[in-house]
Design a protein around this nucleic acid. Sequence first.
RNA 1: GCCGGUGUAGCUCAGUGGUUAGAGCGAACGACUCAUAAUCGUUAGGUCACUGGUUCGAUCCCAGUCACCGGCACCA
Length: 592
Amino acid sequence: MPDNILVSVAWPYANGPFHVGHVAGAYLPADIFARYQRLRGNRVLMVSGSDCHGTPITLAAEKEGISPQEVIQRYHPSFLKTFQTLGITFDLFTQTYTANHYRVTTDMFLRLLEHGYLIRQTMVGSYSESLGRFLPDRFVEGTCPNCGFPRARGDQCDNCGQLRDPQDLIAPRSTLDGAPVTFHDTEHYFIDLAKLEPALRAWLDGVDRGYWRANTLLFTRNWLREGLRARAITRDLEWGVPVPVDDPAFKDKRIYVWFDAVIGYFSASIEWAERSGAPDAWKEWWVCRPDGSAPARSYYFIGKDNIPFHTIIWPAILLGYGDLALPYDVPANEFLNLEGDKMSTSRNWALWAPEIEDRYQPDALRYYLAANAPETRDSNWSWADFVQRVNSELVATWGNLANRVLSITHRNYGVVPQPGDLADADRQLLAATGQTFQAVTELLDGVKLKAALTETLALAQAANQYLSEQEPWKMVKTDRARAATVLFVALRVVDTLKTLFSPFLPFSSQRLHELLGYQGILAPQPRIEDAIAFDGTPRTVLTGDYPVDTGAWAVSDLPPGQALQSPAPLFQKLDEALVAEELERLRAKVRA
RNA sequence: GCCGGUGUAGCUCAGUGGUUAGAGCGAACGACUCAUAAUCGUUAGGUCACUGGUUCGAUCCCAGUCACCGGCACCA
C-alpha cells in the first residue's frame, strides 16, 4: 500500500534570482527526497511557487519603475529555468498571483473569521508623508533617544542595542527617501494565536517529535515558551490579496504576505489537481480522515529563518481552518556560506544559480551541494573544495568505477556475463551491497541526505577495492569463467549504486541505466507549461509526469545476457585552473 | 541587552559519559595498469576553543571566558 507524501518547499520571493544557498537549503533536498519516495513507489505531490506579494516585490518594482507584475515576469521564469536545468521535479511550481490562490486565501481568511480566530485591533503605523502610505518599521530610521546614534532603526538601535518602537525615535524618517515619518492609528485583522495555542501545544506534544531536527524542535519550543500573541495578517498596502470583508475601511488594505504565502502549499495542491484533470485529488494529501488522522505525511523543506512560520503559524492556521493535515516534519536547513563569508545580496557576495547552472554538469552541482548541504549547521561553498570533491569523489571514485566495469565487460563479453559459483569475496561484496541499500533507505526515510550519500559513496569504494583484489582484467586472459563471475558481481553492485545515487544524480543515473542495457525512465525530468495569471495574462509553471515504477527502489537483479551499450564516461573532470577563474569572477562582482 | 546555536586533523565535515577520537580530501611512500594519470594499500597529522567544576572517568554534563552566527515577534 503506497503512502501519500506531500513535499512542500519554501516559496521564493520573485524579486531576484536564486543563489546556491536557496538550492542547497530547500529545492535540492526536497527533490532528492521526492525522487526517492517516488522510486519507493509512494505517491508524491511536490509543490511550491513564486511568492509574488510583499514589500520586497513592491520595492523592486518602484526601484526599476515597473509594475509588480513585471517584476514577477522577470524572475519567475528564471526560477523555472534553474529547476529545469538542475532537474528539480516539482509536480507543480506555480505562483501566488493566480485566481486560484486568491480564491483559496480568501476562503481561508473567511473560515478563520467564521471560526472566531481573527480579531480586529488598532495599531500605530509608520506613515511616509512623501509616499502617502504606511511603511514597515524597518524602513524607518531616526536618532536614538538613548545614545544619540543618528541612524537607529525603527525596531532596534544598532549602536546601543536598545529595543524600541519607531515612535520613540527623534526626527523619524523613511530610509527609502529620507522624508519625514508620522504615526497614525490603523485598524487590522489579527490571527488570535493565543486562542489557538492550546491546540497547537496539544499537536506538538501529542507525539514524539524526536525525528524532527534538533534545531527545529528547539526553536519551536523556545518560541512557544514565550507564549503566543495575536499577529496582524493585514497591511496598509495596495499590492496583495484583498481583505474579503464588506467594509470601506479595508478597501485599501491587503492580506499580508506571510499569511498568504504559507497558504500557497494548499492552493498549489488544489491547482495541481485541477491541472491534472482530477479536481478532488488534492484531498488525498490534505483532508484528514474521519478518525482525524492525516491522509499523507507532509514534509516542509525550508531554511532556518522560516522555522516559526512552519512549526507554529502555518499549523495554527490549519488548526483554525479545521480538518486539514498538519506538518509531519519540517526538515529545516541552515545556511550555505560562500568562501567562508555569509552570502549577501546587497554586497553582491553570492553565487547566483543562473551564472553557473549552464557551465557545469547538473549532477556535479547537485553532488557538491548535497554532499556539502547545511543540514545540521552552516556549511560553506568553496570553489577549491568544489573542484576537489567533484574530481576525487564523483569522477574518480564513482564515475570511474562505473566506466571501468562497463569497459572491461563490454570489450570482453558485450553482454552481462553469466556468473559461475560465487566465491567468499563475491558474497561479501554482495552482502555489503544489501546492507548499504538498507542503511541508505533508512537514512533517506529520516531525511538524512548527507549521511545517505556518504554511505553510498563508501559502497563505491568497496567495489573499487574488490576490483583491485580480483583483477578481472588479468583473469579474462587466464580464467574467463571466473572473470565473468567477478564482472557480473561488479555490474550488479554498479547497478545498485545507480539506483542509490539516482535521487542525487538523476541525469547520470538515467544515462547509466541505459548503458547497462535497460530501457525506460529511472530519473524523470520536469517540463515547463503555459498557464494564466490572476490578471489573465500568460504565465508559465513547472510540472511533470513522474511515473512510479514500484520495483525501481531495490537491490539489482541485473539479468545475465542483457546487452550492454558501448560505455562512455559519465562525468567531466574539472580543470583546477577554474578555481582561480571563479574566484576572480566573484571578486569582480563585488568591486562592480 | 535578552534568548539560542556553533567552535573536533592542513581543508570540508561526522561522532560519543569509558580502553589507542573518526571519514573524505590534501601530504608522503608503495602496488597496480581494466578505467577520465583513474584505482588500491600503508604512514604521518588532533591538550576535540580556553578556564574551572561534577564524576572512578569529560571532547561529550554544569558554570564562566573568548570568537563567530542566528532569533528577539508588522523581517520573511
